[in-house]
Amino acid sequence: MRLPSRFPYRAATWPGGVARPPVKRRTGMAFETEWARRYPVRLARALVLDGVTRPAVRALASPELAGLDRIEGLEAPAIFTANHASHVDTALLLASLPSRFRHRTIVAAAADYFFDTRAKGAAFAFVLNAIPIERTKVSRRAADSAAELIADGWSVIIYPEGGRSPDGWAQPFRGGAAYLSLRCGAPVVPVHIEGTRRILRRGAKTLKPSTTTVTFGTPLRPTADEDARRFTSRIEAAVSMLADEQGTDWWTARRRAAAGTTPSMTGPPAGAWRRTWALGENRRRPGPSESRWPKL
């Protein structure tokens, strides 16, 4: 039965002469996610993660895991920081985490993107255990809530780039992860994810199965004289080294790191086409599909 499309079956229109009161926001940073960490929801999420997400990730991304031995003895909570190229990253990373982390990890997700509507927010809070953060700055509220959760024993996944890579090259790291580590004393685990851009790049609509590699690095802790900015540089360097290690081998990467010649993840400071060219990705990309005519 279709309901009539008028009041009171639908919301009333607002009289023109009446000022709208400030809307009490319940989306974005104001989205409440506490419910998603209650036991029944955690149980449901664990079932989804192990029963749906992990098999789907295995089928889609065929992940190769490297460096898990480096976090063997690590105790929760930890802050996992990874490069970010695709929406697939989070599912892949969650599916790749050892079980002691997998079911007790929250994902810092951009409030303006993942929590802009209540339905979206609820979906991501449930499936990924996401919490809203502001990607442009370290807001007190976001930092406080994340710090509380870490203190409560929850590990966190943070993409320090603040968003997915627009062109395949990484973006400079921001200080959120380092700040949280300094504040809470939790170690930072650098992670490098390779290959997800081939599955679902930014702006793409369809998934293309491909192979991926997830490399975990040695947990980092801030030193006594390190501030958030310097610790961030160290985290970025660690992820770059993991990228190098993934592209070459561990020894080469170590040597280049020692010599300060680890290739930058952020690419050459050049024009757009040269950056794309340097990525080397396009050259391997298959040509246009069989159709000789453009799809209109």
Binding site: F7, P8, A12, T13, W14, P15, G16, G17
Partner: peptide, 21 residues
């Protein structure tokens, strides 16, 4: 005091043990 305009929704009138919009 509301000035009714075209976007004003129907107004509730009591009607004994019932209502009218």
């Amino acid at each position: 005091v509301l000035d009714v305009d075209r976007s004003t929704p129907p107004t509730l009138f009591w009607h004994g043990e019932g209502f009218r919009l």
